[in-house]
């Protein structure tokens, strides 16, 4: 009987090592929650700004550059807060697990996340150049979803489902033009908070 548990332990350890040596498992749920809150804050700021500007916008076309400037700054701040806190929580969790952030698995995950993301970013800028601002939220959501699905092979598999949701939202957003900000807030805000909370209770507290 004692032998049995010993073999069972060995098998469990083998599975654990196989997982650990192919996937980056230290992704923190809390970083998802913070990213979501930052996104909601950013979306709220954009909403307030735009609704105060709509009237003026009709009068002067010249304000358009100003609006874009504000939105770019807003998005940039959200990104900084999300990446900053995301890295902080993830590095902390990696340390606890005795894993480094930039080990082979971490880098592999980041590269696979980065390729669709960079493609989407470039594509978004080109679309913007042609004046297709209304498609931006949709492009961001769809490419972010693809990036998550691509990276899910190298980290917690659960982010694949978050990826599916982002793609569906992105496509819906492309259909219902005019609700871009709302879809964006749901995709990057609400979904991140929900996903992050689930991950936190599923993995971090164990």
């Amino acid at each position: 009987m004692e032998k049995d548990t010993q073999h069972l332990e060995q098998l469990a350890e083998i599975r654990d090592i196989m997982n650990k040596s192919t996937r980056f498992l230290s992704l923190s749920g809390l970083s998802g929650v913070v990213a979501g809150i930052a996104a909601l804050g950013g979306a709220w700021a954009a909403h307030e700004y735009l609704s105060s500007r709509v009237f003026v916008n009709y009068l002067y076309n010249g304000t358009q550059a100003e609006v874009i400037q504000f939105l770019a700054l807003d998005a940039f701040l959200v990104l900084i807060v999300a990446i900053g806190f995301g890295s902080l929580f993830t590095i902390r969790k990696a340390k606890k697990n005795g894993q480094r952030m930039f080990n082979k698995m971490g880098i592999r995950m980041l590269v696979n996340l980065g390729i669709p993301l960079a493609t989407g970013g470039a594509f978004g800028l080109i679309v913007m150049y042609h004046g297709g601002y209304f498609l931006l939220p949709s492009i961001m959501l769809v490419f972010y979803g693809l990036a998550l699905i691509n990276a899910s092979k190298y980290t917690l598999e659960d982010i694949r489902y978050l990826g599916y949701c982002e793609i569906v939202l992105g496509l819906l957003s492309a259909w219902f033009i005019g609700y871009g900000l709302l879809f964006w807030a749901i995709g990057f805000g609400v979904l991140h908070i929900v996903y992050g909370t689930i991950m936190h209770f599923k993995y971090d507290r164990a």
Binding site: E13, I14, I17, M18, K20, S21, N103, K104
Partner: peptide, 25 residues
């Protein structure tokens, strides 16, 4: 235990360097 660990890592990776094995195990 160490040999099981080495074999487990090599089963799921094409090739692994010394440092990575050392850190993982």
């Amino acid at each position: 235990r160490v040999r099981l660990g080495i074999m487990s890592m090599l089963m799921v990776n094409d090739s692994v360097d010394f440092k990575t094995i050392k850190e993982t195990l």
